[in-house]
Design a binder for these strands. Sequence first.
DNA 1: CTTCCACAGGAACCAGCGGACC
DNA 2: GGTCCGCTGGTTCCTGTGGAAG
Length: 406
Amino acid sequence: MATDNFSIDDIFKRALNKTSIFKDRNVLRSDYIPDKLYFRDEQIRIVAETISPVLHGARPSNMFLYGKTGTGKTAVAKYVFSKLSQIALSKSIGVRFAYVNTRMAGTEYRVLYEIARDFNIPVPHTGLALSEIFDRIFKNLSRDRFSGLIILDEIDFLVKSHGDDLLYELTRANERLSGVFISLVGISNDLTFKEYLDPRVLSSLSEEELVFPPYTAEELKVILADRIRLGFQPNVFTEAALNLAAALAAAEHGDARRAVDLVRVAGEIAERKNLAFVDEEQVREALLKIDQDRLVDALRSLPLHSKLVVLSVAGLKDNVSTGAVYNNYSQLCKKLGIPELTTRRVSGLLNELSMLGIVSAETVSLGRQGRSKRPKLLIPLTTVKAVFSNDPVLFDLVKYVEDYVE
DNA sequence: CTTCCACAGGAACCAGCGGACC
DNA sequence: GGTCCGCTGGTTCCTGTGGAAG
């Protein structure tokens, strides 16, 4: 092989020398907590003041933080906790911190498991009774003279799916502890979930309440400018692109997390295209890409029967009843030679799909024609086909749907 | 005004699983 | 090895219901 003007070393050398438009990609991740939180001084102050009694061994009030997604609730809570834990550590004050996202955790057991783990209490990740984990947490706190501060993020999820039993136990934990205590910081982006709470739990949890307003476009601009300064090489991200990203995110209820995502993805698009700048065009592309990616992921990770329901809806005209969808669905099951689920279950799957925004499931009543949902595909048919064509089980059925829709 | 359709969706229950405890 | 635990993902049975047709 003639290698006069080609050497593998050159390739690597070029790759090494190639300067990225990114300076530090990590600061552009949406879970990154910056050193400085803009426009949240007031909230930080209130949270810190509420929690601070812990430093002289008194029980702080429970808190409840409320605000839309991406308004800094989690960031503020974690920020204050991390500062506090540094101080507590240096002064050897007996307090431990736990953070649990109850939606990620999923079940009551996992929530308790994560609390125990953050408190450095060894517990098995399954197999115990809930009351047993409670006992172990309380025993450890009492024995080691540690109090516990717990952040329960997305607490509305826990309550909606599992009720408030666990919260009830946690709020009255202090009756069982002596000398030490447990305090809670609940975080939610949905205020209506309070209706699900036992009044005793509600009054206990809401000893202190704090609302996080959405960021304005101007505020988002400052936040983004700061991240861009840290995350990108100088003069890469144009002013116009910054303005657009801030405006787009502000239009979506001032969600800072989404704004940062937008900036990062726009940068990745520019990098892939070997551009020296990130401009408005890449921000617009990023907006589309983020939506598209989320959709494809959601679709792909659906369980088999949910996918079949999606296909059934996709294969029908609009304005068709649940019954028709079910018929279509059981046809598909027959073609695959798998047993079909009951109507009750399919109705449930339809509701799940509607919560994911894949299918709308508005119920309408047509008098003597009965009462039913009008399932309708909310996403482009082409996306459904594209995703399912790559599915080892479903790719044959996609063709069938195409025929059906004529 | 009453009837009655075609479902919605709550409640109770079940099987199977992975795993801890003794 | 037997017993208990909680979770998932179902089933069965059931009552509830908006509004056009009669």
